[in-house]
Design a protein around this nucleic acid. Sequence first.
DNA 1: TATTGTTATACTCTATAACTATA
DNA 2: TATAGTTATAGAGTATAACAATA
Lengths: 144, 144
Amino acid sequence: MSPPRHSPIGLSLNRTARLVGRAFDDELGRAGGSLPVWLTLLTVKSRKSASQRELAAAIGIQGATLTHHLNGLERAGLLVRRRDPANRRTHQVELTPAGEEKFLRLREAAISFDKRLRCGFDEQEIAMLDRALTRLRGNVGEQE
Amino acid sequence: MSPPRHSPIGLSLNRTARLVGRAFDDELGRAGGSLPVWLTLLTVKSRKSASQRELAAAIGIQGATLTHHLNGLERAGLLVRRRDPANRRTHQVELTPAGEEKFLRLREAAISFDKRLRCGFDEQEIAMLDRALTRLRGNVGEQE
DNA sequence: TATTGTTATACTCTATAACTATA
DNA sequence: TATAGTTATAGAGTATAACAATA
């Protein structure tokens, strides 16, 4: 019955994420990308030869949603999907040279943005923040 | 030219916010609401007699977007908009009794969710996290 | 039958531009 | 002319359900 006697951390998190996310999306936009595009390229690069289901799970979206983004990226000539000869149900996603270029360009933007984000933080503070965020994810039941 | 030698804090923030946001939205959904609805009701309650422009700014959305949400809430009978007699351009947004009830119900959900979110954190850690988030907002140029 | 991925469709949140009404 | 708000429209991201191909 008593009102909350502490600042709602969820609200603060939400506001921060929206603000930071919007700024990041703008930066990616200037580099010819968007947040889901960046996440997709990054995940494809870092999880070589993963199935699309695994990629989608790693990004945190549904398979059909990933298909949607992959369609856009393939249409733009940034990647190709090949059937795996071993198991022809699964597709192997691979970046084209143009896709590799785009990846590097967006990575530049991401790195420079992250630098801006870290202003005034030392390594230890960032590590603490990261741990706190991880704990928050655990508290809402992240499975991985 | 060297690769980033620290974990990208933006990615961690993004992943956390999406996960936590989804869980919160589910909780609000079970209480018959949604995140923007909750933010709208909360802001209307806490900023008595603010203009819609001010409300929108406080929530962090455009005026037209707020109008969209207010339309839904008014259609649902949760609030009314009255013209201010002093300046008939501005509208005064006021919760109906049903709106007050909904507000309380969603507040319950928000409080219980926040409690879940705080599991394993002590007050000092939450305060530190909150300060860190505020600093991140500052780093991407929050004006207020 | 089970699994991988796609297509079709729709919903939510958001935004911009043009408009109405007040001042 | 300037300001408050609305309407019309659109776009991005996401999801679910039904489907096709493969195992």
